[in-house]
Design a protein around this nucleic acid. Structure first.
Lengths: 246, 246
DNA sequence: CAGTGGTCTAGACCACCAA
DNA sequence: TGGTGGTCTAGACCACTGG
């Protein structure tokens, strides 16, 4: 059962997408929305703030809210899993585990995942396809408590996130993502079908469970031209980050 | 005069950074925060929701909030420009306009900036330096209404955003950013000091004014190894995110 | 100036978590 | 079971926008 403010937001969103509120036009005022939805002001404010965080509307004190966009784009800031993203856009995806083995955690991995010195992690090399073309190569290290669950999954499991939610509950709740560009290594080039050294978009991420326990560290490399990441600056989540040295 | 919830958030944030609340520990409950700050529940909730949107704390219904990180990261809602980001982190930056000319808008630019068929835009090629090393090459197209203001700026103006705010008010309020990886072209390679074809992180963005008018379109290319984009996400509706208002 | 959104309060009920 | 966070209400005052 969705919350009331989510229902209101959904209704307004449909109005924006359906052309009831064209781009550039003014949204109904809070008072009008309160009346038409029969909700208190705080509730309609929650709804329009949700839409603002999606980049659909803008807001200035004293003036009515304005429709900025009419498409519902899934922003990268809302992105939690490749499979969910692809499903949202209606793409046909496939997945294949290329290699999988347990090994002692490296020093960097112990630090990222906050593990003890003798911890053993599960390393998985996974290739993902979009409409039968390889687009993404994932090198993922799972924390020890997840290793047994991951090893139960079939090699062509399309959504690790959803499989884990069914078996052990919500596992990936918060994530930090670092984006940069790297040249394809020989393994990257072979599996993604590009030339060595060609530009790849790299996404490194650490994901934690709802109680703050680090769950996985991953180095994901995207073949260019296939996917693009979208970020909006209304979602408080996008600082540039300076790397040490270089 | 900052809002009360921002003051409360700042106080808690200092506590997290200063070690009063170590990473992994539980934050004070809402009732305790209400008492210690003498504020209503809605206000302290606004404060902790702000901190959650910065990725500092996580929250689950029924359990106390948990400290996830102890570093302060500038939220993108407070940050729109390279210059402001660099200044926040204390980096020494420089900027140099390489080329600047007015020309008719291309079809793509007319669509992006919602211009009429005969519109003339201002194209600027700008190279930016971090600690004297070139790190960013910007190819920016400004909407006609901005062209006169941009042409008044000196060639080494470090912050276009701040200069415009002083002269014509807040111009860049909302933005959408597309991130991918491209190989350096010959001009990219020459100006950024890298080999041709080497991977660059590309950020394309359209920025609009507070009333929704498109103001600029830009293709920015970052030299790898110097900066990285950091993004955070969290499950659950990112509630109550403030839009930039300046 | 009237209308709008931004902030704050004080209460209420519920779903969930941990002991 | 008691405490916690998630949602919703009803009112208030203020700052800002626009005509």
């Amino acid at each position: 059962m969705p919350a009331r403010y989510e229902e209101i937001a959904a209704t307004i969103r449909e109005g924006i997408i359906g052309g009831v509120y064209p781009v550039g036009s003014q949204l109904a005022s809070e008072s009008e929305l309160m009346e038409s939805f029969g909700a208190a002001r705080g509730t309609v404010r929650r709804a329009v703030e949700l839409l603002a965080s999606e980049g659909l509307i803008g807001s200035r004190q004293g003036a009515r809210r304005i429709v900025l966009r009419s498409e519902r784009r899934q922003s990268f800031a809302e992105l939690h899993s490749f499979a969910q993203w692809a499903q949202f856009h209606g793409y046909r995806i496939a997945s294949r585990v290329q290699a999988q083995k347990r090994r002692p955690a490296t020093a960097a991995e112990r630090q990222q995942l906050k593990l003890s010195a003798d911890a053993v992690v599960l390393h998985v090399l996974r290739l993902r396809f979009l409409d039968d073309a390889p687009v993404l190569l994932e090198r993922t290290v799972y924390a020890p408590f997840l290793a047994p669950e991951i090893e139960k999954l079939p090699a062509d499991c399309v959504s690790v996130t959803e499989s884990l939610r069914d078996s052990v509950g919500t596992v990936f709740a918060y994530g930090e993502h670092l984006l940069d560009a790297v040249g394809a290594g020989s393994q990257d080039a072979r599996l993604l079908g590009v030339r060595r050294g060609s530009p790849l978009l790299r996404q490194r991420r650490v994901t934690t469970t709802p109680d703050g326990t680090p769950a996985e560290y991953s180095d994901d490399r995207y073949r260019p031209g296939s996917v693009t990441f979208s970020i909006r600056n209304s979602v408080g989540s996008n600082p540039l980050l300076r790397l040490p040295q270089n």
